[in-house]
Amino acid sequence: MTASLIIQVAIGGLLMGLIYALVAAGLSLIFGLMNIVNFAHGELLMVAMYAALLLHDHLHVGLLLQLPIVAALLFGVGVAIYRGLISRALGVRFNSGMVQIFITFGLSIFLVGLAQFMFGSDFRTLNDGAISTATVAWGQIVLPVSQIAAGGVCLLAFAALALISRTEFGRALEATREDRDAVALIGIDRDHIFSLGWGIGAATVGIAGVMLASFYYIAPSVGTSFAVIAYITVALGGFGSLLGALVAGLVVGLVEALTALFIDPSLKEIGIFALYVLVLMVRPRGLFGRQ
């Protein structure tokens, strides 16, 4: 095993980690805002990937244009989920925590079924010509362009999220997170903030989905493993923390890649799981979580 192979695998892991981080950021944003875990989060990623595939195959829309279209689409989906389901679940007086979990679980099963019904269960790939196959070589280290592009876009998306948090809206978001009842008194429409939060959280996943679709397989069940990694990433980084999601995503990507290299590719998740259990024991609120 050469040093360049290890470096190549590590960089590949970090690039994948940026996608994990962005998926986790959407989950974390929604959780931080209203204490709800979206168990259909992986299925939003799946929807975004199919949207990218359809845009590419039927309308010949290139990657750069797919990004805003799918992000806007997912924003709409997120707002619709909030308005149609979550806002109602928030009003439930009995067992509201459990209702929220199982509503989003029901939604995830529904979306997987819908995708199977529309596209079948076959694995599909989006072959975007040059972007999908090109590689960059640096000495003996070879990396696919699609993954580098994906990592770069995810970093940009993180920068955008950080900027949003500094705007007027970001402050309203923060205030709503702090005390969701008190904000009404200073004229912030809580419902409006929540639905925008869901929109932005879903749009974030939309961007991750488009970039992932450029080099990963697409299938109705593709979301599950990404969702599980997102839950772990968010728990590692600390629920509600943007920086935590970024750092934890990178760590998860790196650990996964190195476990696959040094132990066994079929056991690649075991490294992540072990890390999760360790953090759970030592620091249950995550690396950057607030008490």
């Binding site: 459990m98 199982f102 509503i103 029901g106 995830s108 997987v112 079924g113 819908l114 019904f117 529309m118």
Partner: peptide, 19 residues
């Protein structure tokens, strides 16, 4: 897939209307 849509939809609706 229709089976999953019915099943998921049923869970969703029941959790919402009969918490």
């Amino acid at each position: 897939g229709v089976d999953l849509m019915i099943y998921g939809g049923l869970i969703l609706v029941l959790a919402l209307v009969r918490p």
